[in-house]
Simulated assay, not measured.
Amino acid sequence: MTIAFAKTTLPIIGAPMAGGTTTPELTEAVARAGGFPFVAGGYLTAEVLAPLVERMRETTDVFGVNLFVPNPVPVDREAFAAFVAELEPAAAERGVTLDPEPVDDDDHFDEKLDWLINHPVPVVSTTFNLPTDETVDRLHAVGSQIVATVTSVPEARVAAERGVDGLIVQGPRAGGHSGTADPTRTIEDRPTVDLVRDILAEVDLPVAAGGGVDGEAMVAELLGAGASAVVVGTLLLRSEEAGTAPTHRAALASGEFTDTRLTRAFTGRPARALVNGFVRRFDPVAVNAYPAVHHLTKEFRAAAKRADDPQDLHLWAGTGYRGADAASAETIVKDLGARFARQ
């Protein structure tokens, strides 16, 4: 069986960027270009996700839906309290009151999975943890393919053992959250192409690859290493159809921000962002506590967005962010993939 993301005209996948960045207009533009779109299911209820999927279904019959898989990590209450204490003065300046009690949730995973079982889609991708055997079996039973996000060779092996149909190989230079199944581990920097080669040497599954993609040359490099498609997210952040906040858009193009870093400061899970004041101040005291830190800082970050202040906002960006253009997503995808169009 051919993996669905290898059926598109262009070998380009639009990354599912949760939190409103991947809009229906963005997924439709990726589809029009001949790429493979993913509906971002993270942070949504099943009720909110449903119309987004149905709208996508009206556009193309080759698409996927991404889900966050629950991955509870015990919260070190003492370390969490210390982080709250560090953040409180800055929050008070923005008029935000912090809840000192850690908040947990499963991102409505079971409800969304149930909905997808009852309303099957071509592909379901998972991130933040590997899918269980039961999840894989349930999706296969309704005809959906399932692809798992992996960030290491051991994760790829386990995913293959559980019967997934393909892998999304996410290199450490990708923007936003790492999809690692072990958010407490230290993620070492390395080129995505090396990770792709290592995984393909161990696992016989089709892969898509992303992380640090900065243009057509890297697309060629990843395809040459054996990837069936290349995942782009950061390169779409400034596109006309993306839901990226104006403050975030401006920061990506600004000479003020010159580096990215993996940090747990914003959400308690490693995520790559432009280095700003928040990262410099709070990364040294950040804790492994997702989604507790995500909920803790949510209103603080929202206040920074309203104030148009990039220094306290989560400016997700991969290392290839300088390649992000202010253009139509359709044009961006075509420019990246046209030379590699499938026959």
Rank of each mutant, 00 (worst) to 15 (best):
H295E: 13
D194I: 12
G163F: 10
G171N: 13
A91W: 14
F83T: 03
A217L: 11
G20F: 03
F5H: 13
S125K: 13
D309G: 08
I117H: 04
R342F: 15
H108P: 04
E299I: 00
A50F: 06
T127F: 02
T60M: 06
T59Q: 14
N66W: 00
L315P: 00
T192S: 08
V207E: 02
W316N: 04
V293C: 05
G212W: 00
F109C: 13
T127V: 06
E216A: 13
G41C: 04
S228H: 13
L139F: 09
A181L: 07
N288S: 11
S239N: 03
S254N: 10
D309R: 04
L222S: 01
G233S: 14
G320C: 10
T151V: 15
A307E: 07
T263E: 10
E101M: 03
G215H: 06
L235S: 13
A250W: 02
A326H: 15
N71T: 15
E240M: 02
A307R: 05
T127S: 13
A15R: 00
V73C: 09
N71E: 14
G212S: 05
H314K: 06
L274M: 08
L222E: 01
P89R: 11
P74F: 03
P284W: 03
Y321M: 10
D105P: 14
G64I: 09
A253M: 08
A251Y: 09
A227H: 09
D198E: 14
F128D: 03
F257S: 07
E25A: 15
T263P: 13
D182C: 02
E240R: 07
F266H: 05
D137G: 07
R55Y: 05
F5S: 05
A81G: 11
V142Y: 01
S228G: 05
T186L: 06
T260P: 02
D114I: 07
E241T: 01
T59F: 01
A324K: 11
G42D: 02
P154Y: 12
E221H: 01
T23V: 10
P100S: 05
V232F: 06
G320N: 04
E202Y: 07
D133M: 13
G41K: 02
L116S: 11
M1N: 01
T60P: 10
T258H: 11
L336W: 12
A245L: 09
V121M: 14
Y43Q: 11
T267S: 14
A160L: 02
K7I: 01
P206F: 01
A82R: 11
E256N: 12
R272H: 12
A265K: 10
A174V: 15
Y321W: 15
G226N: 06
H108I: 00
S239V: 02
L200R: 12
V293M: 05
D114T: 15
E78I: 06
L262R: 11
R190Q: 15
A303F: 04
V39G: 00
T258I: 04
P154E: 14
L274P: 02
A217I: 01
V164F: 08
A90Y: 15
E161G: 04
G35F: 01
N129C: 12
V62T: 15
V153T: 13
F5M: 11
A220M: 08
G323P: 15
A4E: 14
A273G: 09
N276A: 08
A159N: 10
N118K: 14
T260A: 02
G163E: 05
D312R: 11
A326M: 07
Q170F: 11
A181Y: 10
H314I: 09
T151Y: 04
